[in-house]
């Protein structure tokens, strides 16, 4: 069997911010009633985390759960575990009004690292980055495509987009982070 690979295959660019393809990440979309015990229980059992409140990300080690909309969560796990975790979630929610889908291969993930990561991103996204706190996920656009981003560490932002536009997004980020384009 062919081995799975992220679309940019580990590409990296260093300008005034470092932009790196974060590689494969297991991602599961869960839609349903986020206030229900069924969803809370299924998520807790599958990844050991609670259901995040509005626009929050709960992360622990290599697992995370993000609030995507009032009826949607994004569950993140190591790529190799995604189908097993998705199966577990689907089984736990079999009787509930909910859907579970393994979307790992439909996404690309980037990390931007450096103190000026916000300066590169604010050229692309209509977001007031000064207002974006730790533990908050922001769904927005980068130039012409949808992205989701959050602060994943000290001076680091993780950005997720659709795999089909990953080349485009990498081009955008590279351009935004190019030397000479610093904002201060």
């Amino acid at each position: 069997m062919a081995e799975a690979a992220s679309v940019l295959d580990g590409a990296r660019y260093t300008g005034f911010v470092t932009v790196a393809d974060a590689g494969l990440r297991g991602m599961i979309t869960l839609r349903g009633d986020l206030a229900s015990d069924a969803v809370a229980g299924a998520v807790k059992d599958a990844v050991g985390l609670g259901v995040p409140g509005q626009r929050r990300v709960h992360a622990h080690g290599d697992r995370a759960v993000a609030w995507m909309s009032p009826d949607e969560l994004l569950v993140m796990v190591p790529y190799a575990d995604a189908s097993e975790v998705a199966g577990k979630l689907a089984q736990a929610l079999a009787g509930a009004f909910a859907t579970v889908a393994n979307v790992s291969d439909a996404r690309a993930v980037f990390t931007l690292s450096g103190a000026a990561a916000d300066d590169a991103l604010c050229k692309l996204c209509p977001v007031d980055f000064a207002q974006l706190g730790a533990g908050e996920i922001r769904r927005t656009r980068a130039a012409q495509v949808a992205v989701a981003l959050w602060r994943s560490g000290e001076g680091e932002v993780t950005l997720v987009c659709f795999r089909s536009v990953a080349e485009y997004v990498f081009g955008l980020l590279r351009n935004a982070a190019a030397p000479g384009g610093e904002l201060r």
Binding site: R55, P126, R141
Partner: peptide, 12 residues
């Protein structure tokens, strides 16, 4: 009103 985000119109 669903996610509480205030953004400019190009996000909508």
């Amino acid at each position: 009103p669903h996610c509480g985000v205030t953004a400019e119109e190009t996000e909508f």
